[in-house]
Amino acid sequence: MNKIRDYYSTVVNNTLIDNNIYLIEMFLPEFDGKAEPGQFMMIKIDETYDPFLRRPYSILECKKERLKILVKIVGKGSEMIAQKKKKDRLYVLGPLGVGFSVDKNSHSVLVAGGMGIAPLWFLARGLMKGKKKFSIVYGERTASLLGKEMDKTFGERVFFVTDDGSRGLKSTASDALPSFLDNLPYRESTIYACGPHGMLKEVINFGMGRNIPVYVSLEERMACGIGVCLGCSVKRKGKYGFLTVCRDGPVFKGDEVEI
């Protein structure tokens, strides 16, 4: 595992890419750029105590001394991060957690709901670089600019699903998944999913029913992000006790956690 460090970073770019969604690029001095898709960073918003805690963000992309994250305004903390301008400073702790481990012998199917695309975007870029075949099922409420961005980047690998039918199939990602898989010309698939709780639950159940391996990336409220506060626990499936989303995850095997 890479050494965890707190980088005193500088905002290089902050672009509004959709209603309430910002793409922030940062300069992280001395960051070697090594991270697994699915890993995250804990971002300290400023030097004041309100908000008190850092905010976890999935790594969207990273390379030497550079990091990109996707920020959707959902509350005070994300709003403050979204308002950061070029040259503003942020403390960025990471990379943290356990990311996706890709099964090279099966076809990767990435299932994303809305902002759940962030860690899967990173995974998809890696698969693309490694010239691996993969598919993305991307579900959202309505056709967004983020979806358009995905179309530009991943082209026909993306199967679009919207609640209102404004782009692609009128359905949800989890409802569309079974027939999508049936139409794939591959014998073995592995599912990597991130998105709303309900979607993940359905995807896990589907995968277990069909004996298809499922990996999910979970979200939970976190205080420390490094495994010491035990605040972000998730119940183990069929076993006693909890796992921590920040240290044992955020990526888990679908049959490992009770969500």
Binding site: Y49, D50, P51, F52, L53, E220, R221, M222, A223, C229, L230, G231, C232, S233, V234, Y240, G241, F242
Partner: peptide, 22 residues
């Protein structure tokens, strides 16, 4: 095993925890 989630809630200049001695 500790308490059910959510175990952490932020407060003004602080936080509430209910970990439950896991």
């Amino acid at each position: 095993p500790g308490n059910p989630a959510p175990r952490i809630v932020e407060a003004a200049c602080g936080m509430l925890n209910s970990i439950g001695l896991e």
